[in-house]
Amino acid sequence: HNLTITQGKLFFHYNPKLCLSEIHKMEEVSGTKGRQERNDIALKTNGDQASCENELLKFSYIRTSFDKILLRWEPYWPPDFRDLLGFMLFYKEAPYQNVTEFDGQDACGSNSWTVVDIDPPLRSNDPKSQNHPGWLMRGLKPWTQYAIFVKTLVTFSDERRTYGAKSDIIYVQTDATNPSVPLDPISVSNSSSQIILKWKPPSDPNGNITHYLVFWERQAEDSELFELDYCLKGLKLPSRTWSPPFESEDSQKHNQSEYEDSAGECCSCPKTDSQILKELEESSFRKTFEDYLHNVVFVPRKTSSGTGAEDPRPSRKRRSLGDVGNVTVAVPTVAAFPNTSSTSVPTSPEEHRPFEKVVNKESLVISGLRHFTGYRIELQACNQDTPEERCSVAAYVSARTMPEAKADDIVGPVTHEIFENNVVHLMWQEPKEPNGLIVLYEVSYRRYGDEELHLCVSRKHFALERGCRLRGLSPGNYSVRIRATSLAGNGSWTEPTYFYVTDYLDVPSNIA
């Protein structure tokens, strides 16, 4: 807008934040220059609390790290170098490059900038070799853009010569660093050979998330399962459950009422301010606690030095998902009996873990797994792929695949051998790939016309006998059925096997 004052003059007093240069501009645009008398524009009460600059400061050096910015700028000295009290560095987070010096300023003089007072450097006698002032900004957020400017702080001049310097606002972004852990990993099994893994992005990506790394490792069953005799009275049979499938998407929606109208769909109840505040506090606490764990609990591995020492970490090797089922080394339970199943799973520490690289999504279907087997899954978020990966501390989750139908069934015939004193040795093959492992066998036998009897055969007993022995049988026709019990439950009964026990007292003698 054009402003013209045809008559009258300007009068400025007691404006401590208004620089004289701005008042002189007002004289020019209003056409009143030359009308004012000496005392109409006070030299001592206008701009006496402001830094009124008329020179431009330029930054000469900028260096960044993930949490620091090192700045240096060209030296500046007023005509009387004693008038320079120091520099004021202003900075704040700036997602967009549209910041002005006066953003967030209120009537009390406060604003949204963080201000650092910096002492002037030592003055050199040689004007050509003056030290460049600077400042190291610490405690910054990774991968965050900051708006920065600097200006001088000078003393009051009796001659009211307006001098000083100020830089333009520059924008500097800190470097990326390792992201925080992925949030809320959930693993479920939808079949006997697959596990579905879902997660949420890290709360602090500290860069642009480029991919996720998912490692999985087959877990050995508890050692007590191999040692305890679950045929003993009072000892509860062990059981394991597989990871249940995901709930429906509708039930997972946030901010939804727990109660549904019987007449149909209901609208979600909005969260109160107290609920939102509580969630923010919980989120802040979780982030602080995660940072504490990362800094205190997890110790970084030592990389190899120039002395030739090897990095103890196993090298990563990509495998196809079809090879995942046989990740671990199978060892027989008892070496003397080769027909026992290889369900003991000690994992070799030198073995390469299978892994998958996930790009542009937060889910993965891990296939080719062994049925009813526990897996430990390790999830890392990465925001750099080359020249070397920059990934987060791992988040861990466990899951067990679903049982395989008929995996616990005894394959092959049940054979028998009759000894003296009416002892019958029953023999059968253990299931080759049971659900988890076989903890015991149930032997059901009966003599024709009598009630059915049951015998429990422990895992250890089966390994020693290759089956079991029935003792003290009365003469007669017998039928026997056997079924295995694994961590997933009972298998199917075998087809009945028949044998006849004679009275050993009636056996004919070869003595003449």
Rank of each mutant, 00 (worst) to 15 (best):
S203C: 14
P205H: 05
N206K: 11
N206H: 09
N206G: 11
G207H: 02
N208H: 05
N208C: 09
I209E: 09
I209M: 10
T210I: 15
T210P: 02
H211L: 10
Y212K: 00
V214T: 04
E217N: 15
Q219M: 07
S223E: 15
S223K: 11
E224M: 15
E224I: 05
E224H: 15
L225H: 06
F226S: 07
E227S: 11
E227G: 14
L228W: 11
L228D: 10
L228R: 09
D229A: 10
D229R: 02
Y230H: 03
Y230P: 06
Y230W: 15
Y230Q: 12
C231M: 03
L232E: 07
L232A: 10
K233S: 11
L235I: 08
K236D: 11
K236N: 09
K236Q: 08
L237F: 07
P238L: 07
S239E: 08
R240T: 13
R240F: 14
T241S: 05
W242M: 04
W242Y: 05
S243Y: 06
S243T: 08
S243D: 08
P244L: 11
P245F: 14
F246K: 11
F246S: 10
F246E: 12
E247Q: 14
S248F: 15
S248R: 11
E249L: 08
D250R: 09
S251W: 03
S251K: 14
Q252G: 13
H254T: 13
H254E: 03
N255K: 06
Q256A: 14
Y259M: 05
Y259H: 09
E260H: 15
E260W: 12
E260L: 10
D261S: 12
D261V: 15
S262L: 09
S262M: 12
C267H: 15
C267S: 12
S268C: 15
S268P: 13
C269Q: 04
K271M: 11
K271S: 06
K271R: 11
T272P: 09
D273V: 13
S274L: 06
S274N: 09
Q275R: 06
Q275W: 11
Q275C: 08
Q275Y: 07
I276L: 07
K278L: 04
K278N: 11
E279P: 08
L280F: 14
L280N: 10
E282R: 09
E282G: 14
E282K: 06
S283V: 05
S284E: 12
F285T: 04
R286G: 02
K287T: 11
T288I: 15
F289L: 08
E290H: 15
D291L: 11
H294K: 15
N295F: 07
V297N: 08
P300E: 07
P300D: 15
R301W: 08
R301C: 10
T303F: 08
S304D: 15
S304C: 06
S305L: 07
G306A: 05
G306H: 14
G306K: 11
T307C: 07
T307G: 14
T307A: 07
G308W: 07
G308M: 15
A309N: 09
A309I: 05
P312F: 08
R313L: 03
P314Y: 14
P314S: 12
S315Q: 10
S315G: 10
R316M: 06
R316Q: 04
R316S: 14
K317D: 07
K317Y: 09
K317L: 13
R318L: 13
R318E: 11
S320E: 07
L321K: 15
L321Y: 10
D323F: 13
V324Y: 03
V324E: 03
V324M: 08
V324S: 07
G325I: 12
N326G: 01
V327I: 05
V329Y: 11
A330M: 08
V331L: 10
V331N: 12
V331H: 15
P332N: 03
T333N: 10
A335H: 10
A336M: 15
A336G: 09
F337H: 07
F337M: 14
P338R: 12
P338H: 10
S341N: 14
S342W: 03
T343D: 04
T343N: 09
V345G: 07
T347P: 09
T347S: 12
S348L: 12
E350V: 12
E351Y: 13
H352S: 07
R353H: 12
R353Y: 12
P354E: 09
P354T: 12
F355V: 11
E356P: 07
E356R: 11
K357G: 05
V358Q: 15
V359S: 10
N360E: 10
E362H: 11
S363T: 11
I366R: 02
I366N: 00
I366E: 00
G368V: 06
G368H: 03
L369M: 10
L369P: 01
L369V: 08
L369R: 02
H371F: 14
F372K: 02
F372W: 09
F372A: 12
G374A: 04
Y375K: 00
Y375M: 09
Y375T: 02
I377T: 02
I377C: 09
I377A: 09
L379I: 10
Q380E: 06
Q380D: 09
A381Y: 04
N383K: 03
N383V: 06
Q384A: 02
Q384T: 09
D385N: 06
P387T: 14
P387M: 12
E388D: 14
E388P: 08
E389C: 07
E389F: 11
V393E: 15
A395V: 11
V397D: 03
S398M: 04
S398G: 03
A399T: 08
R400M: 07
R400L: 04
R400A: 06
T401H: 00
T401M: 01
M402S: 14
P403M: 06
P403W: 12
P403R: 07
E404D: 10
K406M: 11
A407L: 09
A407H: 15
A407I: 03
D408H: 01
D409A: 05
V411R: 14
G412N: 15
V414L: 08
V414D: 00
T415F: 06
T415W: 03
H416N: 06
H416A: 05
H416T: 10
F419S: 06
E420L: 06
E420A: 07
N421W: 09
N421L: 12
N422S: 14
V423R: 11
V423H: 09
V424Q: 02
V424C: 08
V424T: 03
H425E: 10
M427C: 01
E430H: 13
E430L: 03
K432G: 01
P434M: 04
N435A: 02
G436N: 03
L437M: 04
V439W: 06
V439I: 09
L440R: 06
Y441R: 00
E442S: 06
V443T: 02
Y445P: 01
Y445N: 03
Y445I: 01
Y445M: 10
R447S: 07
Y448P: 13
G449W: 05
G449P: 09
E451S: 15
E452H: 02
H454R: 11
H454A: 04
L455P: 01
L455H: 11
L455V: 11
C456K: 02
S458H: 03
S458V: 02
K460T: 10
K460W: 14
H461S: 10
H461K: 10
F462K: 05
F462L: 05
F462H: 13
A463K: 07
L464K: 11
E465F: 10
E465D: 04
E465H: 11
R466M: 09
C468L: 05
R469N: 08
L470F: 04
L470Q: 01
L470G: 00
L473K: 01
S474N: 09
S474I: 10
S474W: 10
S474V: 10
P475I: 07
P475C: 06
G476F: 00
N477F: 09
Y478C: 00
Y478I: 01
V480G: 02
V480R: 01
R483G: 01
R483K: 11
A484R: 00
T485V: 03
T485Y: 08
S486R: 02
S486Y: 00
L487S: 14
G489F: 07
S492Y: 01
W493L: 04
T494L: 03
T494F: 01
E495N: 10
P496R: 05
Y498R: 11
F499V: 12
F499P: 01
V501N: 07
V501R: 02
T502H: 03
T502C: 08
T502F: 04
D503V: 13
D503P: 15
D503E: 09
L505D: 08
L505Y: 14
L505M: 04
D506C: 04
D506L: 08
P508V: 11
P508R: 15
S509C: 03
